[in-house]
Design a protein around this nucleic acid. Sequence first.
DNA 1: GACATCACG
DNA 2: GACGTACGTGATGTCC
Length: 934
Amino acid sequence: MSDSSFGKGCHLHLIDGSAFIFRAYHALPPLTRKSDGLPIGAVSGFCNMLHRYVEGNTGPDAPTHVAVIFDKGSHTFRNDMYDQYKANRDAMPEDLRPQIPLTRRATEAFNIACKEKEGYEADDIIATLAVQARAAGGRCTIISSDKDLMQLVGDGVEMLDAMKNKRIDREGVFEKFGVYPDRVVDVQALAGDSVDNVPGAPGIGIKTAALLINEYGDLEALLERAEEIKQPKRRQTLIDHAEQIRLSRRLVLLDENTPLDFTLDDLEVRDPLPDQLMPFLAEMEFRTLTKRIADHLDVEMPEIDDTPASAPDAPEIEDVPFDKEGYEMVGDSAALQSRIDRIYELGYVAVDTETTSLDEMRADLVGISLCVEPGSACYIPLTHKAHRGDDLFGSDDLAEGQMALEEALSMLKPVLEDPSILKIGQNMKYDAKIFAQAGIDVAPIDDTMLMSYAMHAGLHGHGMDALAERYLGHTPIPIKPLLGSGKSAITFDKVPLEDAVPYAAEDAEITLRLWQQFKPSLHRAQVTRVYETMERPLVPVLAAMERTGIEVDRDTLSRMSNAFSQKMAGLEDEIYGVAGRKFNVGSPKQLGEILFDEMALEGGKKGKTGAYATGADVLEDLATEHELPRLILDWRQLSKLKSTYTDALQDHINPDTGRVHTSYSIAGASTGRLASTDPNLQNIPIRTEEGRRIREAFVAGEGKTLVALDYSQIELRILAHIADIPALKQAFADGQDIHAMTASEMFDVPMDEMTPDVRRRAKAINFGVIYGISGFGLARNLRIPRSEAQGFIDRYFERFPGIRTYMDDTKAFAKENGYVETLFGRRIHTPNITDKGPRAGFAQRAAINAPIQGTAADVIRRAMIRMPAAIRDLPAKMLLQVHDELLFEVEQGAEDDLITAARDVMENAADPVVKLDVKLTVDAGQGANWAVAH
DNA sequence: GACATCACG
DNA sequence: GACGTACGTGATGTCC
C-alpha cells in the first residue's frame, strides 16, 4: 500500500451500510445468540457479506481505499425542510434495533473504516466522498443499489449492485431514469418517491418526468415554461405544484459538502487484524463463520463459549415441565428488584395483568405476573382483598404481604417503557390499555396471539387456552373454579393469594413458552412481514382508539327507545288482532305455528331443527298473501333497533368518560378484518331511514366535528387488480359508475339508457363475484329463476374471462397449499378445501373471497398504522374503523386539513409493498353527528 | 348453550 | 345427477 495521498490511480469503495444491514436482516431467519438470546441474525448476515466482500477484493480493480457509511439519527436536515420526509416508513423491527450498534463494531473488527454523521444521511456522506475522490483524480465505486445515489454516477464514479454483481454506469442510470446522472434529481423531483415520502408532482411518474426533462432541458426551464405544455392536465399539475416539486428536488439532491472530520487518506485499505476480528466473532458466537475466517486468515480458531449464561446446566427449553411449585409470589421491592435485574440481563419479559373486569375501561389492576424463563414465573399481587367475595363480612381490607401498588408500578414503569426491553404478552392490547390507565406506555411489545394469527389464521382460534393445548400440550389452570359463575361470581381481587399466584404466574409462563416457539416459526411460515407490519404495530393504534371512544348522546337514544316502545305496542295489538290470539311475537317458533299451522299459509318450510323458517326473506314473500307478515317484519325491525341499539348502547356509555368504548379483536376474523365487540360499533344501522337515525346519537364533542372517510368500492377495485380485468380497471380509471358499466356490458344497454333495475342486477352480480358466485345464490338474492341467474353468470364470465380464471386458480392454489394469500402476503388457511359433497362449495367460496376481503382489510390496517404520524400535528383523533371506513373527531376549523392528510394516507396505503393497477379513492363527509358525516 | 334472526361491510 | 349454497362478522331473544 502506498503512503502517498489519495489521487490518480486510487480507487475508493463506499459501502452503503444500511443497505447491507437490511439485506442481511431480511435474508436470514431471526437467529439469536445461544448464550443469552440476543438477536443476532442481521449481524451474522452482515459479517458474512463483509467477509465475502473482503475475499472478493483481489486483482487489478481492487480498492485502495474503503469505508462503510451508516445513517445516524432519524432526524436530518431534510426533516427541517419537510416534516413528512420518510414519515411513512415502517418502524424498525424491534429485534433489529439492538443489532445496529453491533454492525458498527463488526465493521471496525474487520478493520474497515466506519463513518457516520449526526443529522446527515449516509447518502450525503457518500456523495461528499465520491465528489472528493473524483476531484482528486481517482475512481470511486459505490456499493449500493439505492437509486437515490445514481445522481453521483459518471466521471470515474460508478455503482455496484453487490447482490446482482452488476455495475451501474452512466448508461445504466439512463436505463433506469431515462436521463443521465446530472438530470436524475430533476426526474426524481417530478416523479416523487413513495418510499421516502417525497411528494413530487401528482400523476407524474419516472417515464413522464424523463420525457419532460429531456424536452425542456432541466427542471427550472420546465417549470418556467410550464405554460407551453400541451396536455392540459399535466400543464396544470406542474403549475399548481411548482413549489412542491422544487421542495422535492431539494429533498432528493444529495449534499456534496457534508462537513467531515476525516479525509480520503484516512480510508486506506487495511488488512484485517486477527486479534481484533476473531474475538468479536467469538463473542457473537458465530461458529461457522469464525471457523471459515480463521482458516482464511490462517490463524487458530478461538474458543467459543455459548453455554447459556443464565443457567449453565439448564436442560433444553422443552424439557422443563410446567411446575406450579416454581411459581413465586413477589411481595416486596427487593424481590421485585431481583426480577427486574434478571429482565435487564435477558432483554425481554413475558407480562400478564390480572384485573377486576374484562372491560379494560372499567377494569382495576389487581396484580401483575412476569416470566423470563420457563419454570420461574412470578406473580405480584397488588390489590387483592383480605376476604373472599362470599365472606359474610367481606371488607375492603387488603390481603397481607402485597407490595404497594404505586411502588410496584414506579419500579416497573421504566422496564415497561424501556425501548431495549421487549414485553411479551398474549393479547397485549388488553394489558397495554390497563397499564395506560396507570400512565404507563408499554413498548416495545410482542404478542403471541397475533403471532399465531399471522401463522394460523383459518386453522383454529388464538386464545391462550387453545394455543397452550395445541402447541405446548399443556392444559392451563381453569379460571372458572376460582371465580365461580353466574350471580355468585367474584372478581379476581377476591381470589385468595394461594390460588391467584399459580393461576396468574402460569399465564405469563405459557405466554413466554409460546413466544419461544412462535418467534422463530414466523419466518418459516413466511409471515414475518405480515406480523411486523400489519399486526404488531396495530396494537398501540387500536388501544388509543378504544381508549378515546366516541361520544354517544343518551337522551337521543332514550327518546328513540320510548318511541320504539310505543310503536311496538301498537303493532302488537294489530298483530294479535290479525292472528286471532296473543303470542310471543319475538318467538319464531310460535310465529311459525301461527302462520303455517293455524293460518295455513303456503310455503312453510321446516329447518333442520323442525321449526318453520320465518326469516325476513320468507316473510317478505308471504307479505303479498297476507297482512300479518308485514306487521311482523315492521315489529322485528323496531325490536332489533331497540334491544340491540337504543337500549343496549346506553348501557355501554362509560360513566367516567361519558363515551362508548368498543373493543376491536385483531385476531378474530380469519380474513384479516377487525371485529368490534362490547359494543359492536361496526354494525350500527344505516340501510333503512329509521335505523340510520340511530347514528344521530353518535356525536362530536363540544367544538368538534366528526369526519368520516371511506374507501369507494375497495373490494371491486382489488378484484379488478387481482383478477386482472382490463374493462373493470379502465372503468375505475375513468371514474365510471362501476355497476352501471357492468350492466351496460352485460345487458347491452348503453350507459345513458341505464335503468335503476338493470343497474341493481349488475350490482348484485358484482357482489356475487366477490363472494364466489353461484346461480342459486344470485337467484335467491335477485328473486329470479335459477336458470336466469345462471345465464347472467355465464354472460359475466364471457365478458370478463379473467374472473373465472381467478376463481379456478384460487381454488387450485388452496387445494395445493392449504391456504390462500392476500396481496400483502397474509395467509388464510383453508383446511376444508378438500371437503367432498355439499360442503365443498362453502370452502371454495370462502377461498375465493378471502384474498379480496383480506387484501382490503390489509389496506385499511396499513392506513390505520400510518395514521397517527400523519395526523400528529392536527387536533384530531381516530375513533372508529368499519371495514372500509375510518371515523375521526377533529376540532372545528381543522376538518379540511384532516381530510387532506387522512385521505392521502388511505389512498396510498398499499404503497410501497403493492403497486395496485387501480387507484384507491376515498370519499369524505363531515358533520356534528355520524348520520351527517357518513 | 344452540339456534334463529338481523344489524353492518 | 344430487347435494344445498352467496363472503365476513356480533348481539339479541327464545327455548331447552
